[in-house]
Design a protein around this nucleic acid. Structure first.
Lengths: 149, 149
DNA sequence: AGCGAGTATCTCGCTCGGCGAGATAATAGG
DNA sequence: CCTATTATCTCGCCGAGCGAGATACTCGCT
């Protein structure tokens, strides 16, 4: 499992990056009295809001791999901490929409913003082909991780 | 926060990849009656073994961000499941070295091997400069995530 | 040699995130 | 409208991980 060429080096780098990003959000969570799951929820919610999609309790739970009881507990906790708001669905009144509060968004940006800017800064000097290479690699790994079993 | 150029697309891809890899190992964990932490421990142990470093209980706990009690519980659990062995330190008999069993290594490879091969396969068609681009980007993000607070 | 400080691991009791089962409320279909 | 379905919540429980402290071993000092 030693050196199977320069490709293997990239694979180990990718693994190191995912580990380090995980630790980064764990630190962020701890610093703000949150749990890893709360951070994942925050990210999912900000994602949905960026995409303009409404996020319901059920969909959030599914995205995080929690069952309904755990999801309810999660949202209770985050609502209590003022990171999230429950809003009864307008059309279908069984639904409960979950919205991030402004303070939570700011919190998230304060922690992940610098990292994002750093990454964008890195890519700024890349030309067309280099950018496509990075994009292609990540897309390929994503595809393999998603479908590969 | 919408489209700040093609760089942002790469950032979102990277985030998607880390999320998906996380889910991948969560699925692996669940399928084998393990917990996410157990998988992280397995990876850390395989890493150490690949690097030829001896892994002690304390060092493993530190790598995973667990305190001593939690680490003991973790190793108890994994030893009970036959994934890990405790070996009293030869020189310093206070230490307890942790070794992965062959079955655990095989288990890990069965789950992560295909993903690794897929990634290597992707990179195989890349030329010198493209490979360097991917490597440089990942290294830069790693650096930013590690040091950026 | 032997004592005390330092280090590595383990034990105990507890908290709390997440699960399974089932209750409740709202919608959709015949 | 009455039943099946869907969305969420309540209750009781399990177990991962924590804090505090016990235990076992090593090392420096005298």
């Amino acid at each position: 499992m030693g050196n199977l060429g320069p490709e293997m080096e990239v694979v180990h780098l990718l693994r190191a990056v995912t580990v380090e990003l995980g630790l980064h959000s764990a630190r962020f969570a701890h610093r703000n009295g949150m749990h890893p799951t709360d951070v994942r929820a925050l990210i999912a919610l900000m994602d949905a809001s960026r995409a303009g999609t409404e996020m319901t309790v059920g969909r959030l739970g599914a995205a995080l791999g929690l069952n309904s009881a755990g999801t309810t507990a999660l949202i209770d906790r985050m609502e209590r901490a003022g990171q999230v708001r429950r809003v009864r669905g307008a059309g279908d009144r069984r639904r409960v929409l979950v919205e991030v509060t402004e303070t939570a968004v700011e919190l998230g940006w304060a922690s992940f913003g610098p990292l994002i800017t750093a990454a964008v800064e890195l890519l700024r000097v890349y030309d067309e082909r280099e950018l496509a290479a990075v994009k292609g690699f990540l897309a390929g790994v994503l595809e393999a991780a998603t479908h590969g079993k």
